[in-house]
Design a protein around this nucleic acid. Structure first.
Lengths: 146, 146
DNA sequence: AGTGATACTGAGATTCGTTCTCAAATGACG
DNA sequence: CGTCATTTGAGAACGAATCTCAGTATCACT
């Protein structure tokens, strides 16, 4: 992965990318796998994981780690954007609210880091979950803790 | 965990909290476990995990999911603060740079979410890693991908 | 077309972090 | 001192992700 001299666009890779592009709900690798199997029943999970990692490393997909022990989620929308994660149902919705320009420069100056990017996630209760009783949200976290 | 009527401050819990308070490097659960064993050799890892989760749920510790397949890290500094994660060595340093007040209100208004908080992590190369050749950072991610 | 080199795949095993199970231990309190 | 809920520790179990490796597909070149 560090020194790809030749990258092939195989049917499997196309299938994964297609599924990811078609999905708008930030699927996990397992969900992508399940979906891809409908059209390519012989594909292996390793291939899906490999392809996802490849897409991320070539900038064609984003990997979201939405906290907790939850599985990583993937997003074909590669424009800079953030997410709001619902503490009730675990879903994530897209936001496009840029972090103020000066902020990154400020952080870089203070920390000495060469900043290459950032991940920003808001936590809260989505409108749906608010509707069905925000008071009854289980304390343990999102719907699928593990 | 949802309805604790009686919470005991056991020696094990004190030991975990002590270790976490003494550590300033955002240890993983495994690191906390290893450290706690020096003073309480008979403690089990389950207890450490349980206690860590308990501390998080009672607001006495923060859980950081620093992306990738990396293990969760814990932080006894419960004041609102963010982190810069080094893509070279995987370490995280504290930052205290508040997100502008108006921003959360703005997000809440646009998304319809009842925002309860946020997680902000900057990615970059720490001064140390910059010094020893920032060009040679492995592409796959932090030092210990999994 | 034929050949060798290289990249890719799929199945299953493996690793690792984390949670679960359950009997035994502990602590609180009358 | 007895009771009862809480907590503990050992190990099993789990799920996500990665690794291994033999087999397959594709490329470059003749």
């Amino acid at each position: 992965m560090t020194d790809q001299t030749d990258l092939r666009l195989t049917p499997q890779r196309m299938a994964v990318l297609e599924v990811l592009r078609a999905a708008h709900d930030h699927p996990t690798a397992a969900e992508v796998y399940e979906q891809v199997r409908r059209t390519s029943p012989r594909i292996g999970s390793a291939t899906v994981y490999r392809t996802l990692a490849l897409l991320v490393s070539t900038g064609q997909a984003l990997e979201l780690s939405l906290g907790g022990g939850a599985a990583a989620r993937y997003d074909a929308n590669t424009c800079r954007h953030d997410h709001a994660v619902c503490e009730g149902c675990g879903r994530a919705v897209d936001l496009d609210h840029p972090v103020p320009d000066g902020m990154m420069a400020e952080i870089a100056r203070r920390s000495g880091f060469a900043i290459t990017g950032y991940d920003l996630q808001f936590r809260g209760i989505c409108p749906d979950c608010q509707a069905q009783g925000a008071g009854s949200i289980r304390v343990g976290g999102p719907a699928s803790p593990q």
